[in-house]
Simulated assay, not measured.
Amino acid sequence: MSPFNPTHVSHKQVEAYPIAAAEFQADGSGKVGVNHPEHGYLVVPVPAGFLRRPGAVTEGDMLVRYAPTAEEPHGYLSHSPRAVFEAGYAAIGGQAEPASGAKRLSMADIQSVIVSENYHRVPGSTFMVCFLTLRNGFIVTGESACADPDAYDRATGEKYARANAVEKICTLEGYLLRERLADEAAAARGQHDAVQVA
């Protein structure tokens, strides 16, 4: 090849989220775990052919979803190394960051409440259970299973069982945050009313 001489610049708008975990089948299909800024940890199924080079997806890469088309009504899914993606795309209107004053949960918030983790594989099966103990003593469980016993890998089973447990923590922490915000709003209204009466 001759020296690099750019001829095109991207103008596409895409959705993109950091990849936290990934598991693939021989045909390149599988599941990709991403950190979503609003919904926390999500597991996204990807179609056959998504992974074209074994080992190509690593933690920190970006899962990229292109705009839906007639051929791809849900949007074409791809992945990009983080540095390559950041060199080619900028966040639209700062959407990568929470709005000023917005209160939402981050993955760091979720991870901060976990104090220990344990795993148990049901004997004679591919069924794995993850036990995450939270700082208040509550235990959240997550599960995973591999359909093909010959393809079972303990580390992968633990990873997806933990991801399943983390999803449940997101729901619990989301409820607690909403409760706090509702209490703060009620207190603010009460204080405002008191000032008006005075």
Rank of each mutant, 00 (worst) to 15 (best):
K159I: 04
M1A: 10
V43S: 05
R65K: 15
E71H: 05
I169K: 03
M62R: 11
T7P: 06
T141R: 10
F24I: 09
R154I: 00
R189Q: 01
G60E: 10
R65W: 00
E179V: 03
A20L: 15
L134V: 01
D153M: 00
S112M: 09
V115Q: 13
N35P: 01
Y152M: 03
S106A: 12
T69I: 10
G190P: 00
S29G: 10
S29N: 02
G93L: 09
L51T: 06
S78F: 12
A147V: 02
A20T: 15
S2R: 06
R189K: 08
G60F: 14
E23C: 07
L176M: 00
G88R: 15
V14Q: 08
E59M: 10
P68D: 04
R180W: 06
A188D: 05
G174F: 03
L172K: 00
G55L: 12
T7F: 04
V195N: 00
Y17R: 10
L63I: 04
L77I: 14
T7L: 00
E72T: 15
A48R: 13
C146W: 01
Y160I: 12
E97H: 01
A16F: 14
M107L: 00
F50K: 05
I19P: 07
H79W: 11
V43E: 09
H39Q: 13
C146S: 01
V84F: 13
H192Q: 13
R82A: 15
F4I: 12
Y152N: 02
A198Y: 07
V197I: 13
Q95W: 09
V43M: 08
T58Y: 03
A83T: 12
V195T: 04
K12G: 01
G124N: 11
G124H: 13
A188G: 02
T156D: 01
I139L: 01
G49W: 13
R121A: 07
K12C: 07
Q25A: 05
G55E: 15
G174R: 00
A186Q: 12
P73E: 11
F4E: 09
